[in-house]
Design a protein around this nucleic acid. Structure first.
Lengths: 341, 341
DNA sequence: TTGTACGCGTTATCAC
DNA sequence: GTGATAACGCGTACAA
């Protein structure tokens, strides 16, 4: 059993309220008893119970975070951002995973609420679509990250997918590519994919180029990397000289298939990813990609939650811009692109 | 303010104790009032306060986990393992990061204890060395993951680094390599590095080969990948035909340098990593490496914590075996290895 | 300056 | 069956 202020009171020969005061630096107390109580407390190895304090204060100084899985490098960086500003503000982080299962997700959220976290940050893609009504019961601040559903009164911070995709495709067009394939990767709400296709479309439009719907590829397979690999055979039929992949993992899968089948990157095929995971810089050739400010995404979400907790001006939904990272996987189309082979 | 059982009691026209009974399926209550109370509770959107329940029960059904950073793919998988069995047992996870800072780390642990988590799992490398004494004050189960200090009465689950390293070097020797370099990467307690060198030594010993200390390289640089890159210049002078790297990130850095400088892997140089991160399978060529059962590491640690909580037989420290994953980055030494150039 | 008493939201042990 | 009442550990208004 942990030591309580009552235990200390007994030893120090005072009441528990005196102990409480001494330990909380209350000025209305004699220097002598304060010192004595503090010494006794230290000797007994007293550590206050946040549970009791929380009950009294009606807040827990903790934030609940729900994500699909922790082992996703994309989410990990977001969590890091949340954790940083949470810690600085004196909050701890309760982590829960939903494994992309809507039932589990609402379940997880309820558990967090039951634990009386002060706010909830959700970085799980399917939220809202299935159980928006249930969220109404939760009477604490909720912030959604990269949650692209229609406005539903929930606060959110997201990245501008359309702008990011446009940047990627513009880069390829500027390099001289005219047949640029978009490699989808499903397993996620279609709105995400659609936004990037929209960016793709806009870039084509700006360049006054005609978009060929046959360039939109949808490889089948298990997981982003696998689908990226499968994309290569589809690509061969399109005469594309460049591929813009849904995300870095898809791009890396595609690069791997290229390596195995002797397709040279970027000489035969330029490849662009999306996300800018750490790995993107490490593969060979390093991957040109769209940088998502993941750390900032997490930080901003947490700051938003803090603002709501402090009843500050209700920030409107934030959307952050992406950035193009040019590396080695893109170049001007060569004479011997697979599109010409 | 969340709805309390008192609020429900008022509406239902009973006392709060009756509400408690109705909601907890206590049989000593009339069918009628039970139903009525439950209906009222549901209508009012009641969610019990775990804080109050915890105070009464003197346990929180939560586990504290401390790690250096969440954005480390190695740790992420461990966290996933912990989270899985924690959730199945009805526990939530409190996550804290220490950024490898001893002061912060003891601080973080105290915070967790203050929150009265039922047990603490530590996957941070420097623990214990600096503040073992302080840990004595914490009177709850503590499990250390991959913490390789001398026995200090703390429970731990770790991977057998010596065996893993031996496996890696044996593989290279079996392929015909005779000059195998070990690429260190510092930034971590030397015991980790030493264990792998010990495995390296054992493999040489078994093969009745003489070990050349000049083959042990210590590249300088910031981060594993960077050090791996820097290792190539050092390697050139050693006439090594293969490199066993401290971990996958170091190996990937080395591979990247090879790619940039035209050293062919595995034709000119065989490379083996350690960890088996997801990326290892995705780089080109895919990386031969030592698999650490990271998910199981986390699961086992959590099971150990559960066992201690249930006062079951105090499991002794567990050490888990590594496994060799042969991929494309290793092959028999070629005539044109850089060691012969 | 210190002690007494009460509340935070639940569960549990008494009576009635 | 149901209602008081105490207890969990802490903070605090009020009384002394």
């Amino acid at each position: 059993m942990p030591v309580t202020i009552k235990d200390i009171a007994e030893v120090a020969g005072v009441t528990h309220s005196t102990v409480s005061r001494a330990l909380n630096g209350n000025p209305m107390i004699s220097e002598a008893t304060a010192k004595r109580v503090q010494r006794v407390a230290a000797e007994m190895g007293y550590v206050p119970s946040a549970v009791a304090q929380n009950l009294h204060a009606r807040r827990t100084k903790s934030i609940g975070m729900v994500l699909t899985t922790i082992a996703d490098p994309f989410l990990a960086k977001i969590v890091e951002g949340v954790e940083q500003v949470a810690r600085d503000a004196g909050y701890s982080l309760f982590l829960s995973t939903s494994y992309n299962h809507p039932d589990k997700e609402i379940n997880v959220i309820e558990t967090l609420y039951r634990r009386r976290v002060d706010a909830i940050i959700i970085a799980s893609m399917w939220v809202g679509s299935t159980y928006r009504a249930e969220l109404g019961r939760i009477k604490i601040p909720i912030v959604l990250i990269n949650h692209l559903l229609e406005d539903d009164g929930l606060h959110s911070v997201a990245v501008d997918d359309v702008q990011g995709a446009r940047l990627a495709v513009k880069h390829l067009i500027d390099l001289g590519h005219r047949r640029i394939s978009f490699v989808k990767s499903l397993d996620r709400p279609s709105i995400y994919v659609e936004n990037r296709i929209e960016g793709y479309r806009l870039a084509y439009l700006e360049a006054a180029l005609l978009m060929d719907p046959r360039l939109i590829l949808t490889p089948e397979g298990d997981g982003d990397v696998e689908r990226g690999k499968r994309a290569l055979e589809l690509l061969r039929e399109t005469k594309a000289t460049a591929a813009f992949c849904y995300n870095d993992l898809t791009a890396i899968g595609l690069m791997k298939a290229c390596h195995e089948l002797g397709v040279r990157v970027p000489k035969d095929l330029s490849i662009v990813g999306f996300d800018d995971l750490e790995i993107a810089a490490y593969v060979s050739p390093s991957l040109t990609t769209i940088h998502q400010p993941r750390l900032e995404l997490g930080q901003t979400a947490m700051r938003m939650a803090l603002a709501m907790l402090e009843e500050k001006a209700v920030m409107t939904d934030q959307t952050m811009r992406c950035q193009l990272k040019v590396r080695q996987s893109t170049a001007a189309p060569g004479e011997d692109s697979i599109g010409h082979g």
